[in-house]
Amino acid sequence: MATHPGGLTVDAPAVRIRDLDRSFGEHRVLDGLNLTLHKGEFVALLGRSGSGKSTLLRALAGLDYDVHGTGEINVPGKVSVVFQDSRLLPWQRILDNVLLGLKAPDARRRGLAALAEVGLAGRERAWPNELSGGEQQRVALARSLVREPELLLADEPFGALDALTRRRMHGLLRELYRRHRPAVLLVTHDVDEAIALADRVLILHKGHIAAEQAVDLDGERGPGDRDFARIRARLLAALGVGADDDKDGT
């Protein structure tokens, strides 16, 4: 897929999208979208529902079959996707779910290591039904990471979790990112989540990137932080939401 044969040179971007158009029938979802992700960069994509976030992510994942569109997409060879639902096969044990489709001689060892990394060591023989929602999503993270992706695509991965579990998952994802350093594109509608996790936040509006905001926070990122509040206000304004409308952080 990569246009540069030596896609692993230092300055080559992990993802480059040019003039991407996607439409469902008459409705144009993505309209001349340009986007570049650097290697090892954590980018969050914010947008209202229907702004085309998922369409963009599915285009990057190569899952858009019945969609009409043009444009240029360059993605690395190893792409992993984390969906909003954990999407574990209920008839496969946890470890088999993690290893699904992985062809490597030491797959089992790597799978066990990935499960340990997400805090599920010793649960490899469990059925997905026996895990809580948060644990299932951690298995999904392990399944993505065991493939050592250069690009991790996450489509509202914590959207179905309760607030407390979501906070814990933020910490885990940030930690896993620090250790493995893939490029990450996190699609979310939660402004706080975007600021808490990403290094750069993009806002998708009317089918193209309408605004961009670097998150230059170090250390603890919390809503109590002054810089956090500043960035949050700017993002909300870009989304066209007054601070008063934003009661639940969406």
Partner: peptide, 25 residues
């Protein structure tokens, strides 16, 4: 059908897809 989508993202082959997803499902 979401399982088919998943199988595509993890590069599952046709035979493996039938064996791991279709038949148990």
């Amino acid at each position: 059908s979401r399982y088919a989508e998943l199988a595509e993202t993890v590069d599952l082959g046709h035979a493996a897809f039938i064996r791991r997803v279709i038949l148990p499902g």
